[in-house]
Amino acid sequence: MSALLDVRGLSIAFPKATPVRDVSLTVEAGETVALVGESGSGKSLTALALLRLLPERARIASGEVLFGGRDLARLGDRELRDVRGRDIAMVFQEPMTALNPVLSVGDQIAEVVRLHQGLSRGAARARAVELLDLVRIPEPQRRVAEYPHELSGGMRQRVMIAIAVACSPRLLIADEPTTALDVTIQAQVLDLLDALRRDLSMGLLLITHDLGVVAEWADRVAVMYAGRKVEEAPFEVLFATPLHPYTRGLLAASPRLEAGQHCSVGPLNEIRGSIASAAGEKGCAFAPRCPLARAACRIAVPDLVSIAPGRLSACPVTTAAPVSEACHAAPVG
């Protein structure tokens, strides 16, 4: 069976820059795939490109976005509109700006189901209440008439999710869906997204910068750095034996709740410099910050090499060495 979503060699270009290069990605039905990276990594642009929602001057320079046997990158506008919201839905980081402030939440949900499913006004209204209940909003009959500003941040994000799943999409793209939320609310929203993924057997593409979220909720993880995918692995493999120095650096740099580390004992492992050093780099974009970089790393972009099924890394230094030894060579201090 072919994957639900199959992105092949996607590159996104602005007139003067190419912030996403040659990214491939698959999502199976019922699977949660996390796309991880810091700001500037191109993860959000990649997500937007899947539905061709790119900013005005950006365009898909090359690559295919295969979904249900069709290439979304080349689909006509009308067909694409049918796909958006019906087959593939999207949830954004800021529910306040994504919702229309002058329409009640019920009207906004009803609008989507009427557009895609042709329901009558009354049926759409009933469906809106049902959907609010589905996303676990208490008293949906009352909430359906409220406006976005009357709801809390967590509630607004639930409304966004209700709109997204209104037409039972086969793929849900969630772009930093919990970044603006508090940690106890984040747990609720992730729990909800996961339950919906199961119940509707959707594929879930989770765009995030939070490794904790990835570790707990993702099945597979793709790590992006400066516009390229640098590593991909099943979640447990990634966290147990990260291969790419960037992934290792990230894992080492994050303070953990369960770890015994404290500032009185010693400093955190830091990744020196910032992602901006990738600009103008001919070789590996991470080389200027990488403790393992060799001269060869700065000459040509390393290939993404398949190490095991579903296991890719774009670092010749660490993939050449046995995994255990490479881990000992990980940056300290």
Binding site: E38, S39, L211, S254, P267, E270, I271, S274, I275, R289
Partner: peptide
Amino acid sequence: LDLSIQAQ
């Protein structure tokens, strides 16, 4: 700040 900068 981004995670890689937080530790710094």
